[in-house]
Design a binder for these strands. Sequence first.
RNA 1: GGCGCCGUACCCAAGUGGCUAAGGGAGAGGUCUGCAAAACCUCGAUUCGGCGGUUCGAAUCCGCCCGGCGCCUCCA
Length: 487
Amino acid sequence: MALVIYNTLTRKKEAFTPLHPERVHMYVCGPTVYGHPHIGHAKSYVSFDAVVRWFRYLGYRVKYVQNITDVGHLTDDADEGEDKIEKKAREERLDPWEIAQYYTWSYFDDMDALGVLRPTISPHATGHIIEQIELVKTLLEKGYAYEVNGSVYYDVCKFPEYGKLSGRRLEELEAGARVAVNPEKKHPFDFALWKRAEPGHIMRWPSPWGEGYPGWHIECSAMSMKYLGETFDIHGGGIENAFPHHECEIAQSEAATGRPFVRYWMHNNMVTVDGTKMGKSLGNFVTIKDALKDYSPLTLRFFILSSHYRSPVDYSAQALEGAQKGLERLHNSVRHLYRALQKATDSSDVSSPFSIETFQRRFEKEMNDDFNTPKAIAVLFDFSRELNKYLHQPGPHHKPFLQEAERFYQVFAGEVLGLLPEEVTREPSAPIQQMVEKLIQLTVEVRGELRRRKLWPLSDKIRDQLARLGIVIKDRPDGSSEWEIGE
RNA sequence: GGCGCCGUACCCAAGUGGCUAAGGGAGAGGUCUGCAAAACCUCGAUUCGGCGGUUCGAAUCCGCCCGGCGCCUCCA
C-alpha cells in the first residue's frame, strides 16, 4: 500500500507522490527562540521526526528544512506590540542576540534528548534578511504590497485565494474581527512584510524603505523557497499556525512566484495539560526540561507517538505513567530477545515459529496510512507478545529467526520510531563500561551463592542496594539471576 | 458571532459502512517463585455521549440535543 497523507489544503487523505523522484522536500515551522521549548514543541517535532524517519525508511532522500525564528515575531496582534525576543532580552537584561542564541541551544539540547534527528538545514531568520527584502521587493513590484511610512504591508484583497488553507473568507474574518485596526493598513487583515524600526529597537537592518525588520510570516516563505524551491512537497507545523501564519505564507509565496507553493500541508494537533490548553498566563506551562525531571526522554517520545499526530493529546501524570510502563514492556521483550540470542544455537532442525514478515507488512501498512504511529506501536506489541511466547518455551531457539526478530526491532522500534534506548542498541561497550558490567556480574554471582545457602536477608540487602543505584535484579525460576539498568 | 475538532471499557488510545470494537496502563484469577520483579496464560466494552433518521447493515453517514476543546489575536 502506498503512502497516503492527510492534506489540510484539500481536507482529505491523498496518495503521496514527490515532485522529484525519490526525493522529499519538506519544511516545518521551527521555534521562536525566546524561551525553553515546551511539550507542545515536543509533540510537533517528535511527530515530524517520525515522518522524516518514515520517508527515509521508504527510501526517499529527505531535505528537511526547519527554521529558527530569531526576529520579527511580535507579542501582540495586528502587527503591533513588541518583538518577543527583544521583550525577553529586556526582562533578562541580555541583548536579543544572546537570547536567541541561548534558547536556540536549549531547543537543540531538548530535541537531541528526545531523539529528534536534526533537520538537514536549520536556517535563521536573521541570516536571511537579504532574501526577505528581495521577496518584499518582488511583492511590491507585482502590486501585492504597499509601503506606508517605512513599513510594507501585504494587500490581502489582491490575493483572491486568501483563506483557502484555513477555510476562511475575508468577509467572514472581517465580521468577527476582534483586532484593533492598524491605521496604516488598507484592510484589517493586511499583514506586515517589513516593519519600520522605532527608536530603541535593537534588531534592525537597512532596507529600501529605511531601517526596519522583517515581519514574521515572510521568513518562512523566503527560507523555504530558497532551500526547497518555489514549489515543494511538504509543509508542516502546528494546527494553530494554519491561520494566519500559513495562510500568509501561501499568499506571499504564490503571489511572488505565480506557482503553487506547497503540495501537502500537514498540521499536528495541540497538547493540553490536565485537560486545558497550555498557556503562560494559566500557569500550566510544562517545558520539556520540566517533563524530563519526571520521565525519561523515551517515555515522553513514546507518549507522543502513542496518539496520532492530528489528534490532540492531554499531558497528565496518569497517562505518562501508563506510557512508561508500556515502554518498559517493549524494552523487556527486546532484552529477552538479546539474552536468548546469546544462548541460541545455529541448529537448523528447529523452524521459525511465526512469520516476522507479516508483522513488517502490518507495520508498513499502518505507517503508510498517514503515519499512524499508534497502530504501528500496537503492531510492535503484538509482535512482542508472539515473540515472548516463543522465548518462554524451553530452547533450543532458532538463531536465524532470532536474528531476524532483532532486525525487526532495530529497524521499526529503533530507526523508524526511535524508541529503543542506547543500552539495548549500543555497540560493544567501552573498556570502563565493560569493567562496570563485570563488577555487577561479580556482585550478582556472589549474591547467587548467598541465595544457594539461603542467606535471604543478606541477598535481599544486595538486591535493594543495587536497586538504589538503578541496577535491577530479576531472579529466574532456575535459580539464576539477570540484571539490567532500570529505566 | 464565524470556522473546525472531539466525546470509544476505571485511565490512555486506534478504528470512520459489514470478518470476534486494535494496542498500552490499571484490575481479577492462574503458571513460575524463599520473597520481590519480570515473563507467560486466562478474564474484561453485546457496545462506541443522548435521541431520532438513512441503510439489508452504523461507533463509523445525516439531523437535533448534551458535554469538552481548538482557531478566529502571539503560540508547536
